[in-house]
Amino acid sequence: MAEYKLKTPLTDEDIIKLKAGDKVYLSGVVYTGRDAAHMRMIESLKQGGELPFDPKGQVIYYVGPSPARPGYPIGSAGPTTSYRMNPFAPILIEKGLKGMIGKGKMSQEVKDACVKYKAVYFASIGGAAAVVGSAIKKAEVIAYDDLGPEAVRKLEVEDMPVFVCYDAYGNDLYELAKKEWANKL
């Protein structure tokens, strides 16, 4: 398992070197979005409208942060469970999205889209939200402010640690890790 430092936006060259199990320190802009924001984004596409940001090369972090205290850009910000975004992720990947950050399993359709369009699903540590939140440098709501914690935010992160979970070759870190560590108690 390799370690990489990557800066967003990500390119196909970045993606093809990543393998399930690699640790990546992500820096640069990451957009937030979860259930309600995805429903709106996909509805907007259906109506022929625009997305709040151009997804080409970008990474979406599935998170609904807690409110920022005065003097801080954001509150706690750990990943939410990703499977609820199963219906939306392949559509955004087709539009050029290169990565999603979340926790938990996603669908075969998401894995297939990662292979077909060269994208990666990154797993982050659920419940390590204070650690992640305190490492976010800047946060700005760019769309759907009325959704509160579910608004789309533009984050600036520095060396955010994530693991490559689904790579562009169809591998699944959760399955690999489970097999490796079964019956080892």
Binding site: K103, G104, A123, I125, G126, F163, L173, Y174, L176, A177, K178, K179, E180, W181, A182, N183, K184, L185
Partner: peptide, 14 residues
């Protein structure tokens, strides 16, 4: 459960 291999954050372990 701890023999399932799932581990912390599902990334493998006991």
């Amino acid at each position: 459960l701890n023999n399932s291999g799932i581990g912390p954050a599902g990334l493998g372990g006991i």
